[in-house]
Design a protein around this nucleic acid. Structure first.
Lengths: 175, 175, 175, 175
DNA sequence: GATGAATGAGATTTCATTCAT
DNA sequence: GATGAATGAAATCTCATTCAT
């Protein structure tokens, strides 16, 4: 059943390019080099294609996995830098899905969930390391959303940020 | 010719809500409490409405005006905080237009321009104040995009950031 | 708003001719000499057209009105003959709607209701006149469905029955 | 070649349930627990399935056989009652085929033929028995279509009539 | 200016039928 | 014989746009 994946690939590509509303089923079919009718053997509707993409190609699970990585015992700034770099790579790998997130009106919720999860991942890490005396006491909540935002926005804009420089900015003394 | 503005208001509201592609001309007309035909007396096409919104309701000029404000002679962190607060207010005031930016495929460019302008505004300010010895030497480019991103993303997500805390995070000693 | 009626007329004609499922929206549009899209200004869907026909063109109310006519004080066989003739005329006038009834799977219920109402109309009349000693005692329920069926089937088959002969068959002595 | 019959069984069931136009080839295939493609090894088209049903499952022959039964020498009302009961059973046994008759536009003709045949069967019987002095002289044509209609309509509506009562209604003195 | 009926083009979806396996 | 993926044609429906009033 690799045909299904092939269709999802095409849909992801086309939706990211033209937006979910802007892309037609015919567009997707042409990108997959099949006839439009075939899409309906695999998906109930265009809408269902979007939902399937979000469900099966979503990377929230992979974002959650990063939490274990945060347990790393190396110095805080090293681990934080790696964490952000991983997150940045995740976004880079899923640039098209992010584009779909942004184009699909009904995908606002997934975006918010993603952001909340990311903030928590980083925030929890900072709290731990402050408690351990490794990082200076600071507003960890604001720091978390700042770091998250800096990586996410710049990746989205196609102008990825230098993660090491970013960490150095907030925690200069530790570098 | 206030009828024109009324139509633009309705279009902005509706496009922000349903996305440009998702909204129909009829939707806009109903929101403006007129009939669809009337829209074509003021605009050539639905597409032209979007362009007009971007052109006439864009806030790039107001963002540029902030540059003069950056000349303020008060302490750097005070001015920076005010600058970011202004920028945040600008985004809050134009939340609907931002939503249109994100939904309209052809509005990707304005977004990039906006970001570049914002980064430059903040970056130039930081360079000046570092040169003046008011702020510690640091990677001003990374700082600029970080500050910009932190404000923009959180406003967009509906979870606005505490601007003073943000500045305090990057420049703790100066607070 | 006579356009609406014109479209219903066309729909009735076409649905009766080709069956609801067999007829296309395009068929109806062509019969009405408009474009298919226009139908959707007046009706939500093809399905809604059928429902509207059943609701607005149904003749159940007129069938019910016949009940007052049954109060007529003239001899039973005279009144019964007139009643059946009226009913037969009703069916003749609504031959197309009947055809739709038969073709639309979901219209089975209206048909059953129509039949029940008709049986009751005739049955009640017979009971009264038997009670009045005007008609010989007999199985009025069976008589009612027989009379109803004889008229309905033959009208439907395009071979209308002679109503007077029909009444004469069941009540020869009274003639 | 019982597979063919199995497919016809499924088709009959599905066509009766959803109407010929409303049922899809896939519906029939699923009901027969085979794949759609297989149907085309046994029938040229969906249309051909309907025609085959009408041709091979039609009960006109069995209706004609009743004619010999009409030769029965027992009293007229007894034989007539049996005749109608047989006819009623025939309809009951072929309820699904009748449903197809009613749903398929092109099956209107078979219905008319069936009705004509039924009327003639009963009509001829009545003529004979009137000639034999067994039944009172009456309009046998009207009687035939009345008896036929009463049985057919009520069977079709799912409210079968009491055949003995029906005969008693038309020929009370003979009972 | 303003209406809203009407159109035409195209989008989504369905489905009878074919065909390689 | 049997499968079921794939197609092509058509059906339902949507909607930006026009135009007579």
């Amino acid at each position: 059943m690799w045909r299904r994946e092939q269709l999802l690939d095409a849909a992801l590509r086309v939706f990211a390019d033209k937006g979910v509303d802007g892309a037609t089923v015919k567009d997707v079919a042409q990108a997959a080099e099949v006839t439009p009718g075939l899409l309906y053997r695999y998906f109930d509707s265009k809408e269902a294609m979007v939902e399937t993409l979000l469900a099966e190609r979503g990377f929230l699970p992979r974002l959650r996995e990063l939490r274990s990585q945060a347990r790393d015992s190396r110095p805080a700034v090293v681990v934080l830098t790696e964490l952000l770099a991983e997150f940045d790579r995740l976004l880079a790998d899923n640039a098209e899905l992010m584009a779909v997130f942004f184009s699909a009106a009904q995908a606002r919720a997934p975006l918010a969930t993603l952001a909340a999860e990311g903030r928590r991942l980083i925030g929890d890490f900072l709290i731990e390391r402050v408690a351990a005396g490794e990082l200076r006491p600071h507003d960890t909540a604001t720091a978390a959303r700042t770091l998250f935002a800096a990586v996410a926005v710049n990746r989205r804009l196609g102008t990825p940020i230098d993660v090491a420089a970013l960490v150095g900015l907030l925690f200069p003394e530790e570098g």
